[in-house]
């Protein structure tokens, strides 16, 4: 216990606290637990991945060949699929965040302005969030099915009803030009609830008196929105955008379940590529290099956004 006794700060920094020997055991336990977890599960794996991204690392071979920067060079300059996958990841993230944030803001403002059924709207827009991702991805695949999926059959039935010529079957997930958009629509549906709840909480934190004062000064609804609502909502909004970019660049389940990266590579994202290279082709070293490039890009994006949005966003607060 002597070690932890020394680890403790001089008592003067917290005069209101009574020093008791029992605290040392509590602190020691917490540090041991945290250190064991984060060293074994985060710090060590992080360093390990970094080192092995310079090797031709294959798990079943006894010795690994040092490659220097070859893995990184292969991803950045030779592997065309890497850049295709990067493009797909960004397409998904862009669609998901732009469409998601703008419409979620609209929905949050609308729900915030109604007097009745607010709880009902909140609950129904939030519902998709609590459903398991794999399960609802399968349900959406079934909805998107070209022949008997409800989306296409509804279109056929509407055409029938209006006596129009039968429209062609739309391959929502089987056509390269539609597949990514269909996944973005699914992501929009799945994540709308969380974003809406955060924005709604932000909206309800804006004091009503600001709007009353603006009204007295003769501000219309549009001026109130752009001069009061939007600036004061910036922390919540930038939280939604930043977390949205981080999470959608890491999206895996929708592509894995609904399209397996197809058709014609149109929905293979970086994480899916990383998964394939590592756990199907067992090229651990190459996978590690790809994951470090992704990590660097996510860090850079997060940093740039935080600077650009100039928000009071505080990690997770």
């Amino acid at each position: 216990m002597a070690l932890f006794e020394r680890l403790r700060r001089p008592q003067a920094t917290s005069p209101h606290r009574i020093r008791l020997a029992g605290q040392n055991a509590m602190i020691a336990g917490a540090i041991v637990l945290a250190a064991a977890y984060f060293l074994i599960w985060t710090v060590f794996p992080f360093i390990y991945t970094f080192i092995y991204s310079f090797f031709d690392w294959q798990p079943l071979r006894p010795t690994q060949e040092f490659l220097g920067l070859d893995n990184y060079a292969e991803a950045l300059f030779q592997d065309q699929r890497f850049w295709l996958a990067m493009g797909n990841s960004f397409e998904f993230a862009f669609g998901n965040v732009v469409l998601g944030t703008v419409i979620c803001l609209l929905v949050a403002v609308m729900i915030n302005s109604v007097k009745r059924f607010q709880a009902f709207f909140r609950a129904s827009y939030f519902m998709p969030t609590v459903t398991g991702m794999v399960a609802v991805a399968l349900v959406w695949e079934f909805i998107y099915q070209p022949r008997f999926g409800i989306l296409n059959t509804s279109i056929f039935a509407t055409a029938d009803f209006l006596n129009l010529p039968p429209p062609p079957e739309i391959g929502w997930l089987t056509r390269p030009q539609h597949a990514m958009n269909s996944l973005i629509l699914f992501g929009f549906w799945k994540f709308l609830g969380v974003r809406m709840i955060i924005l709604l909480a932000g909206l309800q934190n804006i004091p009503q008196t600001y709007y009353e004062a603006a009204q007295i000064d003769g501000a219309g609804a549009r001026a109130s929105f752009f001069r009061i609502t939007l600036p004061l909502l910036m922390p919540a909004l930038s939280f939604v955008v930043v977390v949205g970019v981080i999470n959608s660049l890491q999206a895996f389940v929708p592509m894995y379940v609904m399209t397996s990266g197809g058709p014609l590579f149109s929905t293979t994202t970086v994480v899916l590529l990383l998964y394939e290279k590592t756990f199907q082709l067992f090229r651990f070293g190459y996978g590690a290099a790809i994951s470090f490039i992704l990590f660097a890009i996510i860090m850079l994006m997060t940093f740039v956004q935080l600077r650009f949005l100039r928000s009071s966003w505080d990690v997770g607060a």
Partner: peptide
């Protein structure tokens, strides 16, 4: 209060920024 309380906490927070799939192999 204990020594290195804040630095240790920052390390914990920083680990949230690491994308999950990245550490899959180790």
């Amino acid at each position: 209060d204990f020594r290195f309380k804040e630095p240790m906490f920052y390390v914990i927070i920083a680990t949230m920024m690491i994308p999950g799939p990245m550490l899959l192999i180790p």
